[in-house]
Design a protein around this nucleic acid. Structure first.
Lengths: 332, 332
DNA sequence: TTGAAAGCGCTAACAT
DNA sequence: ATGTTAGCGCTTTCAA
């Protein structure tokens, strides 16, 4: 029997006798044959490899995204190369290069910044993940519905009597920051609040960054009550520690609202009230989109996954006893 | 100019004229040439790919290990395929198969259970990570020094007046459990404590598991003070929540000691006192060992990384006012 | 339905 | 120092 017939049997082609197929499959089982994906990739141009570039693998939110992507990839018998860029342009560029050299069939990318040259040059099918999509309108993307998320958060803050929350944002270099801020501003305008009057500090999406930002916020002087909306949970958790270190209490003196829905938020004290993104679903959905992209049918376009509020104990309810407006909270 | 000369220039071989090399490199730059790792792998048998199989990518400890491995791999211009087995034998087996088919040069593996058949059949160089090493004495391994870690923990517990702590362990199927328990017993014997009298419950290394285990522990009846040594931080954090839910206080009523050193432990209230493993270093070291293994020089053998105590607020100090022995704590 | 043969991009003998 | 050649394991024409 020739190699071709065997190959056809192995790859499940139709033009093979049932008898021949069985003989091949049996033999393969006996010998313990395992097809060499490398060689297949060489000829067919498809490696069965997918890439994922996220900013921080140790951030539970991104780990959750990675897990979702991994699972969905496995369901389609593909493997996932996970890279953490650590918010570093150089690292990101080298990861992109590694992905290309490994001849991945496609990649899911959360770009570090607004330098999209590397992406333009990427040359392989890819899907954006996170908030960077709007700078790349031609590319499919999956992210959370920031507009909806911010609205949920604002509605909750207002319902609890916090009409002018301070903000702890991501670094200026990140597109997600602008996206968050713009949406926030829109909601302020809707509520006749002047957003420029609200205190805001930049963090870097890490616990330490949130901690430092909160210290700066506190140093601005104190109102009766300060409410803070942090752009991610890790910063919110850091902020909470800073509050305690300052001899203040959360939520009695300072209310904190997070964004992400990481598990650790359930174990802080008080528990972190937060707007939760569906990380796992985002990862899975991104893989689906990537498959469409690879197949040349970018049906999805931009996908925005809905978020939901997880109510725990980090926000004081100011609405009950004294429903007043504290515009400029945190400035004293 | 022939392909060979070009190839030699590109791969940095010595037997090429400087002039020829420069011409090749220039041309490569102009064309934007990028070597095809697949083809290289095909001929040379090396893909530049490494595999990592961990039980849970969303557990911050393992994420830290993955990050360390990733970094070290990148330093040697290799890529890492990260797989999460989720403590499932079938998943693990399929990941191992994926690794083999992708023709990784080697893998770092934390086996799910004691079914080592898959590993025996793996056929590629690999290094064990975690506690499973002792079942595979012939294989290089990297893990934390459990004996030292347990001693540190016990010394601290005893120093604070907790002579008979309860235990929240991992599932019976995991080797790490036996390792932890055996070491614990040895330390008990050294201190004239009967380990069989101490209450212990099984968890599954998740927050939920720790939560449930603590509830069972509490249901056994209460001593004046209960001290608990959890086999990992996530379970310790879950236990802490259970304590609060039971209307008890940590550390006043229940002291908790964790094991891992995950960042979230710093944001619980009280902060989690824990024995911290060097996750990142373990990941990096494992890659080093793997390189040795691939090169056919298994110099390292078994590497045990030292752990250290991180003192936060989850343990009460019983030693000051009443230095007594509460053997059988938690039984009433 | 099957076989023969070419070739994916590269490397490693070997010959020059 | 350079060129020539064979071949890694597979898929895919093209003929039979």
């Amino acid at each position: 029997m020739s190699k071709s017939t065997a190959a056809r049997a192995l790859s499940g082609a139709s033009n093979v006798t049932d008898e021949a197929r069985e003989r091949v499959l049996d033999a393969a089982r006996v010998v313990g044959y395992e097809r060499n994906d490398l060689a297949v990739g060489m000829r067919s141009g498809r490696t069965g490899l997918l890439g994922l570039v996220i900013p921080d693998i140790t951030n539970p939110f991104w780990a959750e995204v990675a897990r979702g992507a991994q699972d969905r990839a496995a369901q389609n018998s593909m493997s996932l190369l996970v890279f953490s860029s650590d918010w570093d342009h150089g690292r990101e560029a080298s990861h992109l290069r590694a992905l290309r050299q490994a001849r991945v069939d496609g990649a899911i990318i959360n770009p570090v910044g607004d330098n999209f040259d590397d992406l333009d040059r990427f040359g392989l099918p890819f899907v954006l993940i996170g908030s960077s999509a709007e700078r790349f309108p031609a590319t499919s993307s999956v992210g959370s519905d920031i507009a909806q998320a911010v609205r949920i958060g604002m509605d909750y803050l207002v319902a609890k009597g916090h009409h002018a929350p301070a903000l702890i944002l991501g670094p200026k270099s990140r597109i997600a920051r602008a996206r968050f801020l713009r949406t926030f501003h829109e909601h302020c305008v809707e509520r006749d609040v002047d957003p420029s009057a609200l205190p805001m500090e930049d963090g870097d999406y890490t616990v330490e960054g949130g901690h430092a930002a909160m210290k700066r916020l506190l140093a601005r002087g104190r109102a009766r009550h300060l409410a803070v909306f942090a752009a991610n949970d890790m910063m919110a958790l850091g902020a909470m520690v800073a509050v305690r270190e300052a001899g203040l209490r959360c939520p009695e003196d300072v209310s904190i609202l997070g964004f992400d829905g990481v598990p650790a938020g359930a174990f802080s004290w008080p528990g972190l009230t937060t707007v939760a993104k569906p990380g796992r679903e985002i990862g899975m959905r991104a893989v689906d989109c990537l498959f469409d992209e690879i197949a040349g049918r970018p049906e999805h376009g931009r996908v925005f996954m809905p978020c939901r509020l997880v109510e725990r104990g980090s926000l004081a309810d100011l609405s009950v006893d004294q429903p007043r407006r504290t515009a400029g909270a945190g400035r004293g």
